[in-house]
Computed example of a mutant assay.
Amino acid sequence: MKTIISISIAVLVGLGVAIGGSQSGSTLDGLPVFLLCGILAFAVNWLVYIPANNYQTEKYYDLTGSLTYLTVIAIACLFSGPLDARSALVALMVVIWALRLGSFLFRRISADGKDARFDKIKVNPLRFFLTWTLQGTWVALTAASALVIITTETRLPIDIFAIIGLTMWVAGFAIEIIADNQKSQFRADRKNAGRFITTGLWAWSRHPNYFGEILLWTGITVASLPLLVGWQWVTIISPIFVIFLLTKVSGIPMLAKAGQKKWGDEPEYKDYIQRTPKLVPRPPKA
Rank of each mutant, 00 (worst) to 15 (best):
V95L: 10
D62Q: 09
I73N: 08
T151E: 09
G81K: 09
A88V: 15
A85K: 15
A143L: 07
I163P: 10
F128R: 07
A85M: 13
T57L: 10
L63Y: 06
M168R: 07
K114S: 05
A74Q: 15
W169V: 02
Y60E: 12
V139E: 13
M168A: 08
T142L: 04
R108W: 07
Y69L: 08
A144P: 04
T152C: 01
V95T: 04
G136K: 00
E153Y: 04
F79T: 12
W138Y: 15
R127T: 11
I73K: 10
A111E: 14
K114D: 08
V148L: 06
I149K: 09
T167Q: 02
A85C: 04
L126T: 04
V90S: 07
I160V: 10
T71D: 03
L101V: 03
I109W: 12
V123L: 15
T167L: 14
S66M: 02
M93N: 07
F161Y: 13
V139C: 10
W97Q: 08
I158H: 06
G65P: 02
A171M: 11
P125E: 14
A98M: 01
C77L: 15
W132S: 06
R155K: 13
D62C: 10
T131I: 05
V148I: 14
T133S: 09
I109H: 09
S110E: 10
A171F: 14
M168E: 08
Q135Y: 00
V148Q: 03
Y69S: 03
K120A: 15
G113L: 05
V148T: 14
L70V: 01
F104K: 04
T68V: 07
L105G: 00
I164H: 00
G165A: 08
I164D: 03
F161M: 12
Y69K: 04
I163G: 09
